[in-house]
Design a protein around this nucleic acid. Structure first.
Lengths: 144, 144
DNA sequence: CACAGTCGTTAGCTTATCTAATGAGCATGG
DNA sequence: CCATGCTCATTAGATAAGCTAACGACTGTG
């Protein structure tokens, strides 16, 4: 398989188009539980990291701090996030996923990304491999 | 390059993660002109198709009709979309990009997807090729 | 210990999206 | 030839998701 020369200026619009449209689709399919994609993502990051300050979580999720304040507030309302004061720095707050969150996330893990997964099943092995490699690159781009 | 077996249930979360995060990033970088990504996408689809009803455009953009009503309203305010009555069906409306829109789109074409394109430049030829193939698959998924 | 910087939040705005309901118009089956 | 049911676009109303600006509490340093 020879790599084709791909001019970035041409790839960018196509990639953006694919991402925005697919993103809409993924957001639409929001069945199980009432967590939104954004909330689920934040909660998952928090669970993976163990404990984080709002700022750190915002950086990971690529949103501004005030946005994360809101997301966390929603999650706290549902009893999925616990807030404890930082032991030495009075400005900071430590966020952690609660036991309840673990249960919710496990439920999600089973039904997770149902729509997307079913579409992926319809693809060939090779296409999925392309997407796997692409996902890594895209994550890297998002981090940059 | 041997294709690796990729279980969809594992790929889905990673892909969704990559897509949502990158989508946030792309939205954030909204420099030239005051068209949002959503508006730009709708306008481009409209220009490519020539003329469409709101329903058709909504289907292409993967949004519900009321959402498209709003997007079109914004574009119409700016004089970028023209609305003419359907010749035979009084319920329908025909949307078309105006001359002004063509000018705006051309300007965008030059500065287009600046942030994304610059990131893509930093990648290797092979990675870009992976993304190109992935973009096609993703567009196909979004359409499905 | 004053002052500059950091942290989280509040306030206020915009965009993006949905569902439900409405009203106009069409098309068809008696 | 018209009543009835569908389709189309829009309005109405809600929510989520994001931003910037500004604020108040706190820290840490000179």
């Amino acid at each position: 398989m020879t790599a084709e020369r791909v001019p970035p200026a041409q790839l960018a619009p196509q990639l953006r188009d694919a991402i925005t449209r697919l993103n809409r689709r993924v957001r639409q399919a929001r069945p199980v539980g009432d967590l939104t994609v954004t909330q689920l993502s934040a909660l998952t990051s928090l669970k993976l990291a163990g404990a984080l300050t709002p700022r750190e979580l915002a950086d990971i999720e690529r949103v501004q701090p005030p946005t994360m304040t809101r997301i966390v507030a929603k999650l706290e309302e549902r009893g999925l996030v616990q807030r404890t004061p930082h032991p030495t720095d009075g400005r900071q707050v430590i966020l952690a996923a609660t036991e309840g969150a673990r249960a919710v996330l496990e439920k999600f893990e089973r039904a997770r990304d149902e729509w997307l997964a079913s579409r992926l099943e319809a693809l060939g092995e090779e296409e999925r491999d392309t997407l796997r490699r692409a996902a890594e690159i895209l994550q890297q781009l998002a981090r940059a």
